[in-house]
């Protein structure tokens, strides 16, 4: 009995020792050098693997950061300037600051402004509904309300409002990773500059149809009348294909464009109430 145990132990130790020797040489032979900084940089990143930087995950982004010459075009929107500064100090490079951004849903088509003409019962994803038809309200640019953006958000920063049928972004949770921007088949969501106190002014519509057609389907559509374009003192507004667009990098938040909009398609969010309301404002859907 004892002999069996002794033989077993001896043979196992011998096999183990043999394997160790082989492994030692194999490891020497196939050794790969890895920059130890990659590990450190990866630790500094948020670790959400959201893909907001444009790379498959934080590890991959860390490799790219270590390999790159400068940080030009490389930015972690989730960690923001803080993380990038930390990474820069690890690698001994200059961090490039970027304005923090936030996702904004540019559709105003709540049921009260956009009467539902049809009822969709197909596969419950926006991507499929978009490929099939214009949508329940008839606007071929408007939100389909099936929540592809909600499903794709890794930070629980978007949720559907059951009353308005539109997605709502929670500014404090949104990391501007851009996943929802890619997920929306209609391109309704945009990353805009996150101003102080989360103040925002934007055209909450992307309808490029002629004014009359756009308005027929939705009372708060941008009709391309150019009044806001004329009202803007900073040239922040551009008109393209019957649609006004406010460049958030140029906008100085003066709010001059908001009251001139005849369809109330321009929303102002996060501002104190005006002293005298020039026109009756649209109920703010994202607050």
């Amino acid at each position: 009995m004892n002999q069996i145990i002794i033989y077993t132990v001896i043979s196992l130790v011998a096999i183990g020792a043999g394997a160790a020797v082989i492994l030692y040489f194999v490891a020497k032979l196939f050794r790969t050098e890895e920059d130890p900084r990659i590990e450190v940089v990866e630790k500094a990143l948020p670790g959400a693997n959201c893909g907001g930087c444009g790379y498959p995950g934080c590890r991959n982004f860390a490799e790219v950061l270590v390999r790159s010459e400068s940080f030009d075009g490389l930015f972690c929107p989730v960690g923001g300037n803080e993380t990038m500064a930390a990474v820069a100090s690890i690698l001994g490079r200059e961090a490039i600051e970027q304005e923090p951004r936030v996702a904004v849903v540019r559709c105003n088509g709540t049921p009260e402004f956009r009467s539902l003409k049809t009822h969709y019962e197909g596969a419950p994803t926006c991507a499929i509904a978009h490929s099939l038809y214009a949508g329940e309200g008839g606007c071929p640019y408007g939100c389909l309300g099936l929540g592809d953006c909600v499903a794709v958000c890794k930070f629980d920063a978007i949720q559907m409002n059951p009353v308005t049928g539109l997605p709502e972004v929670m500014d404090d949770k949104c990391t501007a990773c851009g996943a929802c921007v890619d997920a929306c088949p209609r391109g309704i969501i945009e990353l805009r500059k996150k101003n102080k106190k989360d103040r925002k002014i934007y055209v909450s519509c992307i309808n490029e149809e002629k004014g009359a057609t756009a308005k027929k389907n939705c009372a708060v559509a941008c009709i391309g009348c150019s009044l806001c374009f004329k009202a803007c003192p900073y040239e922040a507004i551009t008109m393209n294909n019957n649609l006004a667009f406010i460049d958030s990098d140029k906008c100085k938040l003066c709010r001059k464009c908001v009251p001139v909009c005849p369809t109330n398609a321009i929303l102002e969010i996060g501002f104190p109430p005006r002293k005298t309301e020039p026109v009756e404002k649209v109920a703010d859907s994202s607050q």
């Binding site: 049809t118 099939l132 038809y133 214009a134 949508g135 008839g138 071929p140 149809e209 057609t213």
Partner: peptide
């Protein structure tokens, strides 16, 4: 002009 077709798109 553009007219609404069967899919609702114009």
């Amino acid at each position: 002009d553009d007219f609404t077709d069967t899919s609702g798109y114009r």
